[in-house]
Design a protein around this nucleic acid. Structure first.
Lengths: 225, 225
DNA sequence: ACAAAAGTGTTTACTTTACACCCATGA
DNA sequence: TCATGGGTGTAAAGTAAACACTTTTGT
C-alpha cells in the first residue's frame, strides 16, 4: 500500500498509433483483456510507473501490449475528465505515434487480449473516452502533416511520389494534382532522388528519400516550419 | 491519509499567463511563499483536486494565487520529468492564458507571497522546471498567434490597428509594414470598424472590433484555420 | 499494340511584398 | 506651422492552381 497525505489521481498513458499500409490510414487498437471495459477496443496504454517519464511509460506499454517498439511518439494532450474511469480518478496523457504498418507484427500481450489495425474510418466503439481522444488525435494529425514531415515516418526509407501523395490524400481526405504535388514536394528542398526506381504495374517509379539534414537547413533558412 | 495499491504521482497544474500592456509582452509570476523553492518566482499553480478537471484546477489556482479570474486558458502540455520536484513524484499539466494586463489588479494570495508581471525578456530565474515550461509556452504562443485570433484576447474589445500590430511585433519579434499589415488583417474578414476613433498623439486612429461570428464563418469557408 | 502508371512544362490566377504621399489632430 | 501618428493604392515578384501529352514497362 502506498499512502499520501492528500488524495492523488492515478495516471495512465495512451498511445494513438497511426499506420499506413500503402493505401489507407489505420490506427492500432487492443482488445482489453481485463476490466473495466473488458473485451472493448482501446488504445494501448496503462499506468505510469514512478521511475519513468510519461513518454517512457507510453513506449513501454505500447511494447508490452502490441510488440511495437523503438518508434517516434509525441505528446498529444492530457485528458482529465473526472469520471473518465469507473475505478477511481484516472487521468491519461495521450501520445501520438506514426509507424510503417508493415514493419510490425502486432501481437496482443500483457493486459491486451488482441491487437490489430483498424482503418480510421471503420473504427469500433472505443473504451473510456477514447473516441474523444481519437477525434483530437485526428485533428492534430491533419494539422501537423501540413507543417511537419510526418508522412515520412509512415513510409519506408525510400518511397515513390505516388506513395507520398497517397498518404497526404488519406490523411487530409482530398485529392491533389499529381504534377503540382510533385513540384511542391521537391520545392520543399529536403526530398532527394535515390537513383533507383520501383516497379509495380506500369512505368517504374523513381524512388526518393527524406533527407533530415536538408530538412534542418530548410527550416533554418525559411524561419517558418 | 489516502492509500492506494499502487504508487500514484502527485499532479499539479500551472498557468503561463501572457499579458500585454500596450507595448511589450509580459508573463504573470508569483513568488512562492512555501517550500520548496520558497521565495523563488514560479508560475501560479498547485495541486489538482479530485473533483475538478485540470482546466478547472488551473483556473482555481490562478484565482487563489493572483486574483485573475474568468479567463480563457488552453492546455499547453504535461511535464513529467521524474525529478522535477524534490518532494515526491509530481507531474504538472501546464496551461496557457492570454489576458489584458490592465484588466487585473494582480495580488499575491494563498501560497503566493507576491504576484507581478515580468516582461518576457526580463524574466527572473524560475523554480522547478518552469524555465523549460516557459520556453515551450513561448514557442507555442508564437506558433499559434499566426493561425488563431489570440491577439484579440490581449486587447480591449475595441482596438486600433497599431495596437494590434504592436502585439504581433512583440510576440514574433519582428516588424511589419504598416500598410500591408492593415490590409492583411482586414482581409481575414473578421475585423470590423466600429466607427469610433481613438486619439492619442497625432491623427485619431480608427477603432476596430474582433467579430467572433464572422471568424466562425471565415474558418468554415476557408477550411483552414 | 494496348493497358497501366509515371514523368514533365506552361499559362493563369492569386497572394505577398515593397514602397511614399497626404490627412487629422494638438501643441 | 510643425510634429506626430494614421490612412491608403499600385506595381512587381513570388507562389499556387489548372491543365494534357509523352514515356516506360508488362501483357
Amino acid at each position: 500500500m502506498y499512502s499520501y497525505k492528500y488524495p492523488h489521481p492515478a495516471v495512465t498513458t495512451d498511445c494513438v498509433v497511426f499506420g499506413f499500409n500503402g493505401s489507407g490510414l489505420s490506427a492500432l487498437l487492443i482488445k482489453r483483456g481485463i476490466e473495466p471495459y473488458k473485451d472493448s477496443w482501446a488504445f494501448p496504454g496503462g499506468f505510469l510507473h514512478m521511475d519513468e517519464t510519461a513518454e517512457q511509460g507510453a513506449l513501454r506499454e505500447l511494447r508490452e501490449e502490441t510488440g511495437v517498439r523503438d518508434i517516434y511518439i509525441e505528446q498529444l494532450q492530457a485528458f482529465t475528465g473526472v469520471e473518465r474511469d469507473p475505478r477511481e480518478r484516472v487521468l491519461t496523457i495521450a501520445f501520438l505515434a506514426f509507424v510503417r504498418q508493415d514493419d510490425y507484427e502486432v501481437i496482443g500481450g500483457d493486459d491486451a487480449a488482441e491487437a490489430r489495425w483498424f482503418p480510421v474510418d471503420e473504427l469500433p466503439s472505443l473504451a473510456f473516452d477514447h473516441a474523444e481522444i481519437m477525434r483530437v488525435a485526428l485533428d492534430r494529425l491533419r494539422w501537423k502533416i501540413q507543417y511537419e514531415p510526418l508522412a515520412f515516418r509512415l513510409l519506408n526509407s525510400t518511397f515513390t511520389m505516388s506513395q507520398l501523395q497517397t498518404i497526404y490524400e488519406a490523411v487530409l481526405g482530398q485529392t491533389f494534382d499529381r504534377r503540382n504535388f510533385h513540384k511542391k514536394m521537391l520545392a520543399m528542398g529536403y526530398i532527394t532522388p535515390t537513383g533507383d526506381s520501383l516497379q509495380n504495374n506500369g512505368r517504374p517509379a523513381m524512388l526518393y528519400r527524406f533527407d533530415a539534414e536538408l530538412f534542418r537547413k530548410a527550416i533554418e533558412n525559411k524561419k517558418v516550419l
